[in-house]
Design a protein around this nucleic acid. Sequence first.
DNA 1: ATCATATATTTACGCGCGTAAATTATTAAT
DNA 2: ATTAATAATTTACGCGCGTAAATATATGAT
Lengths: 343, 343
Amino acid sequence: MSDSKIRNMDDFASVSGISRPTISKYFNDADSVRKSTRERIEKALARYDYQPNFYAMNQNRRLTKNVGIVIPYMSDPFFAEIARNVENHVIAAGFRPIVLGSQGNPEQEIENLNNLRLIKPAGVLLAPLGRMSDSERIAAFCADVPTVLFDANIENVGEAFIGSDNEQSIGLIVEYLCRTGEPPAFFEMRKPTNPNALKRRNAYVRSMERSGHKPHLIQVEGEGWDFEEIGFREGSRVLADRTLPTDTILCSNDRLAIGLLSAAYQLGMPVGLGENCTLRIAGHDDHPFSRYTCPTLTTVSQDYTSIAKKSAETLFSLIETEQRAQSRETTLFDGRLVMRGSA
Amino acid sequence: MSDSKIRNMDDFASVSGISRPTISKYFNDADSVRKSTRERIEKALARYDYQPNFYAMNQNRRLTKNVGIVIPYMSDPFFAEIARNVENHVIAAGFRPIVLGSQGNPEQEIENLNNLRLIKPAGVLLAPLGRMSDSERIAAFCADVPTVLFDANIENVGEAFIGSDNEQSIGLIVEYLCRTGEPPAFFEMRKPTNPNALKRRNAYVRSMERSGHKPHLIQVEGEGWDFEEIGFREGSRVLADRTLPTDTILCSNDRLAIGLLSAAYQLGMPVGLGENCTLRIAGHDDHPFSRYTCPTLTTVSQDYTSIAKKSAETLFSLIETEQRAQSRETTLFDGRLVMRGSA
DNA sequence: ATCATATATTTACGCGCGTAAATTATTAAT
DNA sequence: ATTAATAATTTACGCGCGTAAATATATGAT
């Protein structure tokens, strides 16, 4: 076990007795070298745990196996979950995923794309910040790198968009709420920071009108990504006012709902379907946490799995055909009602 | 505005009329060039938005301004928060932070360190997975790169350790609980995955014995990082059994407590300090979410700020002196009791 | 054994940048 | 104006790897 430090591919070529270009070829595609050669390389690999320098690799390469995945917020469990899903597809297809979070910051989002450029990705899966995004620079990026948008759309940017059908999913829960009790008011931020908020607002309004009810928007103040805090603070105020025309509140997303549930609890307003309950609260997204709220949160889950799968597959076919999409396709998946305790 | 694409430093040197080595020097330290030169460069920079290739930069460099930050789990809000704190200090000191999460996976943790190696970091701030960590390979890394451990200790690895005094913080809350009601049982995973769990268990036992009470450990099954789910599932079982010798439960961390609170709620067992409450539940860490549980979670907060600051400063002084620490220092900060509604 | 074919090696250059040494230009002080 | 100090430029090489072309070797079929 002569473990003299292997510092680069040249060193490894020496100890394995094979030329560097062949080693390079092996790492690019293990099956592109003769079987006997491959075995010799792998035997050497087992003794000296050499690994090519990832960044040097990408420096002078035509095609790479790198796929960038960019999400709006790393520590939001909703995005973390969908990113994990996408990542698995990318790995399964033999690509190397690089996941980056934009921390709610449009500049960070552009910086992420610029950083991805440096490793010459074969393609990128981008869940943009949405309205806040610097769509011009994102479009410029998409012109150079095959990019598929998911979760949030930016019109005419990227080769395709895959997301949820907010019209359907909001319609679903509005219909459910109307059918089982009073029609819901819609709780949201006046100037929402998260991507699909405006779509959901409009979907709510239309859905209410369709079933002959008057929409009621509760638009609260607040900025940034601390949605629970906003839901709690503004929710406390709204609930304490007791000026709501309904006992049912549909929140634009689960994180607002979580804050609102906490507010209701502290005001001693029992939430749920029980006899003594004075309030029903519903959310949207099936946030990982919504299983543990008190009461558990009735919500509508996005079809993570399908969105992740379709996004990845769309990108792969773009990469394989090595050409841009003729037309920009939009795919929307249906949400699924998740009935729990809160409504 | 002749925006012919600037592809590299050579191109930028041409359009700015300054030699490439000088440009390189400028990017390395803007004050190292003459003021008039600097202004010419910055004028050109404003017109052509060139930015040096980060990875090529680090390829043949002696010293870099990169500082790696590695945390056990990216999407755990607790770690996300402390990482954000550390990151700010790193930026303020003029370094460039690179944050990586190990996703609870020891191999990923090693891979993160290996990836950091490639960008030749000036130093690394590492919050290790703890017991699960491949401490041998981490030690090997620390031998090459100045590394400061925080949050979780690995004996004799790294130049220093900065964390919380679990003995103190657990003692604090045990004392509080004992003083204000029945002495607590300790709710934890039999084989804990998170770093400080064993320290906390021992601290609990000692603290109970010190105040003359018999410790009672509730050690539940479960693996992985889905603590809320474990807290809920096992908590439901434990609470339904009604075999607890006490009405007070101290959880090893807030995430377990969140699951347990949910279990109690669903079993109709009111938690808190009210007359009709049959249970008190407390946690540890002051998880960002513990403000929104029902009832809000009484816990003990770690001194994020101080830990982040001291960790960063320790690393900076190591980097500046360009030498290893004579002795491995350990700094522990006190926790602070956060009294809320649950206990 | 002979030959065509597949595979490996050699050689040489490129990626985008850091860095060192020698040279030249600029600045500030005399 | 002269000089010494400072800063910029030129030149040249290196980092760790990809890649292409020419050459050499191994393989398998005849």
